[in-house]
Amino acid sequence: MDVFMKGLSKAKEGVVAAAEKTKQGVAEAAGKTKEGVLYVGSKTKEGVVHGVATVAEKTKEQVTNVGGAVVTGVTAVAQKTVEGAGSIAAATGFVKKDQLGKNEEGAPQEGILEDMPVDPDNEAYEMPSEEGYQDYEPEA
């Protein structure tokens, strides 16, 4: 019985440690998101679009440190934060509304985080759909 109880105690310690790591990862992701939003706020009209992409990228980098179902929630929060940063930029006159959601080359930025393969159960990952990809044929 002692062996059984000791095993359960060790398992509990492992769960607590994993929860603490997840909590730490979420806190880091939130900190990076805040950094990115402050970065966007300090940019001029020309830099705002690039700044919004930076927020998304920093958040995406930190999301990889967070495991399990938390990833889905962090990704949703990050996307809403990026959308909010863009709205703030438009409201303050840093950028025109028609410039939001495009990178410096004018290509749409939507789907940055949505296409990231995420499995809350950590069982399997699927690649994003290939609808947006084109076949590449090298020139002879």
Results as ranks from 00 to 15, higher is better:
81 T>I: 10
8 L>H: 00
136 Y>V: 11
103 N>I: 03
115 D>H: 07
48 V>Y: 04
84 G>N: 06
110 E>I: 14
40 V>L: 07
131 E>D: 13
32 K>D: 01
120 P>M: 13
85 A>L: 10
82 V>I: 12
90 A>C: 11
87 S>C: 10
15 V>N: 00
13 E>F: 07
47 G>F: 15
118 V>I: 08
41 G>C: 04
36 G>S: 10
70 V>M: 09
85 A>M: 15
43 K>Q: 06
15 V>F: 02
120 P>R: 07
110 E>T: 07
15 V>I: 13
8 L>Y: 06
92 T>R: 02
28 E>I: 11
29 A>S: 03
52 V>D: 00
115 D>T: 13
58 K>I: 08
30 A>E: 00
60 K>L: 08
3 V>W: 05
124 A>R: 09
117 P>C: 10
126 E>Y: 13
32 K>G: 01
105 E>F: 09
89 A>W: 12
64 T>A: 09
27 A>C: 02
94 F>Y: 14
31 G>N: 14
69 A>N: 07
107 A>G: 13
105 E>Y: 15
75 T>C: 12
46 E>M: 12
89 A>I: 14
131 E>M: 05
55 V>W: 14
100 L>R: 01
34 K>M: 13
91 A>R: 03
45 K>M: 08
61 E>A: 14
39 Y>A: 02
57 E>M: 11
110 E>G: 06
123 E>H: 06
130 E>C: 06
60 K>A: 13
23 K>M: 14
38 L>T: 06
51 G>A: 05
96 K>N: 12
107 A>D: 13
135 D>E: 09
17 A>K: 08
39 Y>V: 05
5 M>T: 02
9 S>W: 15
47 G>C: 14
61 E>M: 07
71 V>F: 15
133 Y>F: 14
46 E>T: 09
139 E>P: 08
77 V>Q: 02
121 D>N: 13
109 Q>K: 07
3 V>I: 05
55 V>Q: 02
12 K>G: 07
136 Y>R: 12
78 A>W: 11
140 A>Y: 08
113 L>G: 12
62 Q>L: 05
52 V>K: 00
8 L>T: 00
62 Q>Y: 03
79 Q>T: 13
1 M>S: 00
99 Q>G: 09
26 V>Q: 00
115 D>M: 06
4 F>D: 00
93 G>L: 04
89 A>M: 13
130 E>V: 06
10 K>C: 04
65 N>T: 06
65 N>V: 13
120 P>V: 07
17 A>L: 05
85 A>H: 01
58 K>C: 01
48 V>H: 00
50 H>N: 10
75 T>N: 11
65 N>F: 14
134 Q>W: 14
14 G>R: 12
126 E>V: 04
51 G>P: 02
26 V>D: 00
74 V>D: 02
123 E>I: 15
87 S>V: 04
95 V>D: 04
49 V>G: 04
28 E>F: 10
10 K>N: 04
27 A>D: 02
131 E>G: 03
41 G>I: 07
16 V>T: 09
128 P>A: 09
57 E>C: 08
9 S>F: 15
91 A>N: 06
50 H>S: 06
31 G>P: 01
28 E>R: 14
77 V>N: 02
86 G>Y: 12
45 K>Y: 08
67 G>D: 03
128 P>R: 08
37 V>G: 07
73 G>K: 14
51 G>D: 02
6 K>F: 15
